[in-house]
Amino acid sequence: MINRTHNEKAWLLVLPVVILVAFNAVIPLMTVVNYSFQETFGNNQFFWEGVKWYEQVLNSERFHQALGRQIFFTATILIIEIPLGIAIALCMPKKGIGVSICLVLMALPLLIPWNVVGAMWNIFALPDIGLLGRMINGLGIDYNFTQQPIAAWLTVVLMDVWHWTSLVVLLCYAGLCAIPDAYYQAARIDGANRWQIFRFIQLPKLKRVLIIAVLLRFMDSFMIYTEPFVLTGGGPGNTTTFLSIDLAKIALGQFDLGPAAAMSLIYFIMILLFCWVFYTLMMRDESEQ
């Protein structure tokens, strides 16, 4: 029988990350929880309000509308970006000089700061001076994202697809490159066509990276703030005011820290719930297989 030696001193090695997480996540989260039960008028003076802010946010029409827009936006970009990312990854070369070129091109949008992406697309899509805006109007289509809600939505979605599909592509490409050649050889021997190779070899092997891709894109798109804020400012009207933009308006514009804290915690719990359900279902499916 082997006697295992336990050395608890190894836990000290995780101490730096514990301190880091405490300062950048746990302490701010605790503060938000504290604020969500109180009212403040500044000067570090707080007044206990109980669960009033939660009740107010949960029954607020403004919150329901922002949540609806947020869910619709997230669903739209996931439906577009995931299949598009897989398709582009499948088309990318597996060897040769083309690999480096494709990887650099794919990585470029990811390297651009979020506010710059918003500013770029703002200028690009302006109906009078922007290349995209002028081109669409030149085709005879009336397009003005600063005044038309549908045009604003299309521009925001297009911008997000341009910015973030690359992430899905790179993840899927890494997953595809990790599939051993033996699988393809076996498929060729069995006479499998292109669709069957994708359906029964590539897609199952991509499952893990797709879980990561969907989770990352879900979380990022559900918390999106900078790009739409710079592009449309949440307008026209409130048509592109997503949850985070609404939250910033309440917290910073109106300085209503209590309702903003309650809203951000509700927002956090929704994201946590979705991610947990999604991850659990996907992992259960995998363990059953």
Partner: peptide, 15 residues
């Protein structure tokens, strides 16, 4: 820790 706006109920929750 004034800026963290601690109260007994929230402190009890975290405890």
């Amino acid at each position: 820790l004034t800026w963290m706006a601690w109260t007994w109920p929230t402190a009890a929750f975290f405890i």
